[in-house]
Simulated assay, not measured.
Amino acid sequence: MPPCQTIEPSESNLMTTAIDLSPISGPSSWRGDELATATDWIYHLSDAERAELETVGRRFVTDNPDLRTVTAADYPLPACAGLNAECAHQLDAGRGFVLVRGLRTEEYGDALAGAIFYLMGLHLGVPMKQNELGDVLDHVIATSNKTLDDPTALPSRVRDRLPFHSDSSDVVALMCLRAAQAGGSSSLVSGTTIYNEVLRRRPDLAHLLFEPWHWDWYKQDHDAPAKTYTSPICSYVDGIFSTYAGSSMITSAQDYPEVPRLTEDQIEVLRLYDEITQEPGLALDMDFQPGDVQWLLNYAALHSRTGYVDFPEPERRRHLLRLWLKRDVGRPLVSGFGKNVVQARGEEREETVKDGGRFRIAEAVVPNFEWGN
């Protein structure tokens, strides 16, 4: 076992309590090769749950509420109480993710599929805006043939394999409307397991993960109000461990001269962190089927996807819907953790959104093909 070190609180590292650098255990510490042989991370909808989601989803489409103001109380889902409880448990105290399977999205049309997805999200948290247009329902779909080598490319709008990273919310959710012709698997890796491996191999560098890093905001959203923001990679408060990672965003922030240069130790711990995420057996790969819904706590696991090939017909291209949720369950985090400047809907957002936001379900499920081009 690596030696137990202590980080004392200081203004520079944003810590509020001393931290003992010891291995973290619990259900969020898992390996993909172990989960790949199990199926208990997949929740299969019952007939009653699916029927309720379809019925209430159709009412949602007919009512056509404003996505920025509609609430879970407006659309109760009593038959889905067990579904919601299991998803909440896995997010808050379990592995940090769950895959829900059984929706017949190929029969619904995109508006009904999107309505069901949005309803499920309302019962697990508060949807957040995902860009400066104010969109609360966004898309993962290739809108151009750009690659990540292009500094103007948006990761959600290209076909490249993505590096492991965290999104800017408590929970990120994906619904598969259409799968790729080949590739495009969703990959998850435990942030706890990565940290434990860094600590085991380089206990002298592990403390750096708890110090603030500069992140590229522009690369994630070209309309962002600033080029960068700061956050630690790891948080450990009151016995709760959390992760916020994505080394490509840290590396690209170095393109801005006002950002401090990374030290040799910082470069080394980032390199090690990335190497560990790529080691065989660590990640769990999911081949999305149409109708699959993945719920993921950003603080528990990192996500990525494999590169993919689209069908030649534009209407058959790989298309996922994405939600970012604010889920306030009192999770303790160090100050300034994650992209904390992103606001939940309803918090002074009307004045900040630009023209072009889509706030009704029928329009929200149609991708903005100019975004990311």
Rank of each mutant, 00 (worst) to 15 (best):
Ser185Tyr: 09
Asp149His: 12
Ile42Lys: 10
Gln278Lys: 09
Asp310Leu: 12
Val269Cys: 09
Val353Gln: 01
Asp160Arg: 06
Pro151Lys: 04
Val259Cys: 11
Asn64Phe: 05
Val341Asp: 15
Ser247His: 13
Asn196Glu: 05
Tyr236His: 14
Pro151Tyr: 02
Asp170Leu: 00
Met1Cys: 08
Leu137Pro: 10
Phe311Met: 02
Ala111Trp: 01
Leu284Arg: 05
Lys339Met: 09
Tyr299Cys: 02
Gly281Trp: 11
Pro155Trp: 01
Asp238Pro: 04
Asp204Leu: 10
Leu45Gln: 03
Leu21Glu: 07
Ser168Leu: 06
Leu320Asn: 05
Glu132Phe: 04
Leu162Gly: 10
Arg157Leu: 14
Pro23Met: 06
Pro212Gln: 02
Ser169Asp: 01
Glu52Asp: 07
Asp150Arg: 06
Thr69Gly: 04
Ser190Gln: 04
Leu284Trp: 00
Pro155Gln: 03
Asp265Asn: 15
Glu8Asn: 07
Val353Cys: 02
Ala51Cys: 06
Asp135Val: 12
Met120Cys: 14
Asp110Leu: 07
Lys326Thr: 12
Asp92Phe: 01
Arg316Thr: 06
Thr71Glu: 07
Asp287Tyr: 08
Gln294Pro: 01
Gln294Ser: 05
Gln90Val: 00
Asp63Pro: 09
Ala85His: 06
Gln5Asn: 13
Gln90Cys: 02
Leu209Asp: 02
Val259Ser: 08
His123Thr: 11
Asp274Leu: 10
Arg331Ile: 13
Phe311Leu: 13
Asp285Ile: 07
Glu347Cys: 11
Gln220Trp: 04
His214Arg: 10
Arg68Ile: 07
Ala224Asp: 08
Leu124Glu: 03
Lys227His: 11
Pro212Asn: 06
Asn298Ile: 07
Ala224Phe: 07
Gly125Ser: 05
Val259Asp: 04
Asp255Leu: 07
Val334Thr: 13
Thr71Met: 04
Asp20His: 15
Ala224His: 08
Asp265Met: 05
Trp324Asp: 00
Ala283Cys: 05
Arg101Asn: 14
Gly96Ala: 09
Leu14Asp: 07
Thr193His: 00
Ala72Gly: 15
Pro367Gln: 00
Gly291Pro: 04
Glu351Gln: 14
Arg318Ala: 01
Glu211Gln: 12
Ala81His: 14
Pro27Tyr: 07
His89Ser: 11
Ala73Ile: 11
Leu177Trp: 00
Phe288Val: 14
Ser187Pro: 01
Ala81Arg: 14
Val172Phe: 01
Val342Arg: 01
Val334Asp: 02
Ala253Gln: 02
Asn340Tyr: 15
Thr6Arg: 10
Phe288Asn: 06
Asn131Arg: 07
Gly57Pro: 10
Arg327Pro: 15
Ser29Cys: 15
Pro367Lys: 01
Asn373Gly: 09
Glu275Arg: 10
Arg202Asp: 10
Val259Phe: 13
Val366His: 02
Ile141Pro: 00
Leu177Glu: 07
Arg316Ala: 12
Tyr218Phe: 12
Arg345Ala: 15
Met175Thr: 05
Pro314Gln: 04
Leu320Ile: 05
Pro155Lys: 08
Gly307Gln: 02
Asp160Met: 08
Gln278Asp: 12
Arg31Cys: 09
Ile240Phe: 13
Gly336Ala: 11
Ser231Asp: 05
Arg200Lys: 14
Asp63Arg: 13
Gly307Glu: 13
Pro76Glu: 03
Ala73Tyr: 14
Pro78Asp: 12
Arg200Asp: 12
Tyr108Phe: 14
Leu112Cys: 08
Ala173Arg: 00
Val61Pro: 04
